[in-house]
């Protein structure tokens, strides 16, 4: 590089600027990695006392595993109910918006569904507590009367309606927009030629969807459901408000069960010492579970990146 006065002046100040700016950008990126790492490390450090404590001192008196197991199962049950409801309905709504609704209303309808996602979770919780739970009581009574022989619906049904099934339904409402918006994006990306080819061969609209849209979108659907699962596992307020907690029981329409997130939210404000460490350990378990689910979901998306619109 030739060194005359002009270039040397601009290159010293400019090079510094470049270095500082790219350094700042790099630092911000690394900060994110460090933060995620720190989340894991700090939770682990604060949780350690629980793992080494005398089993008799941990809540329940039989060690951490006995304490955490029922609420892990409760978390999974709540998330499973949510997904069982939200997956078919969410995919239906996504198909409705992408392939059934008239073009003109499809956009606004998508926006309406996105509004569902914008409503804060505590409001869903309050709604579940005050509106949905009392509304569902007759339904629970009917279930316990007619299907009571199945352990899932064993009576007597809760008179307040604050049960696992109610919590699962509220969670379903909350994960529905996630599943819908992700799978809608993917349905819209189906190659038009595939769809038109199917229609040209005489397929009905449903046959076109079955043969052209669904196979194309399958990895996207799976990852959308997994991301919904991640949300349902970690959702706190809906469960904390709606579920009246208790021991792990198979019946979904009786008072009982608990999830990790709600356990933390309900007990953390008053916790100290070993109890605090227990709750943080529970948080660590939740973190690991959702991390696993999300990594699997993201892995599926990135493996099919060329098709999926989720990225």
């Amino acid at each position: 590089m030739t060194t005359n006065a002009l270039t040397s002046k601009s290159s010293t100040s400019g090079r510094m600027g470049d270095k500082i700016f790219s350094g700042a950008a790099l630092a911000a990126g690394i900060l994110i990695l460090v933060t995620l790492f720190a989340v894991a490390v700090f939770l682990l450090i604060q949780a350690l006392p629980t793992f080494f404590a005398d089993p008799a001192e941990v809540s329940g008196g039989q060690g951490f595993f006995t304490y955490i197991w029922p609420i892990v199962v409760g978390t999974v049950i709540a998330a499973a109910i949510a997904l069982l409801i939200a997956t078919p309905v969410g995919l239906g709504v996504a198909l409705f918006i992408s392939h059934f609704a008239p073009r003109k209303v499809a956009g606004p309808l998508g926006y309406v569904i996105d509004l569902l996602a914008a409503i804060p979770s505590v409001i869903y919780g309050a709604w579940g507590y005050m509106v949905l739970a009392p509304t569902l009581v007759p339904g629970f009574e009917w279930l316990s009367k007619n299907l009571g022989f199945i352990p899932l619906f064993e009576g007597p049904a809760s008179q307040t309606g604050k049960t696992m099934l109610t919590a699962g339904i509220v969670l379903a409402v909350m994960v529905l927009p996630i599943i819908t918006s992700l799978s809608r994006e993917i349905f819209l990306q189906t190659p038009k030629l595939h769809e038109e080819a199917a229609l040209a061969l005489g397929a009905t609209r449903w046959e076109m969807i079955k043969t052209a849209v669904i196979p194309f979108a399958r990895p996207g659907i799976i990852s959308a459901v997994m991301l919904g699962l991640g949300r349902a596992l970690g959702e706190t307020m809906a469960v904390a408000l709606v579920l009246s907690t208790g021991n792990l029981i198979p019946s979904l329409i009786k008072t009982g069960n608990q999830t990790i997130a709600a356990e933390i939210a309900l007990n953390f404000p008053e916790a100290f010492g070993l109890r605090l460490s227990e709750l943080i350990a529970a948080g660590l378990v939740l973190f690991l579970i959702t991390l696993l689910v999300n990594i699997i979901a993201r892995g599926i998306i990135s493996r099919h990146k060329e098709f999926s619109g989720a990225n």
């Binding site: 720190a38 700090f42 949300r231 970690g234 943080i280 959702t290 999300n294 993201r298």
Partner: peptide, 26 residues
């Protein structure tokens, strides 16, 4: 970074709260 930002999107909000509480608690 891209991968972990995606993963971070899925952190349960309560875990984020616990992290901050644990961090400042220490």
């Amino acid at each position: 970074i891209t991968f972990f930002v995606d993963v971070m999107t899925g952190i349960p909000s309560i875990v984020a709260g616990l992290f901050a509480a644990a961090f400042f608690g220490m």
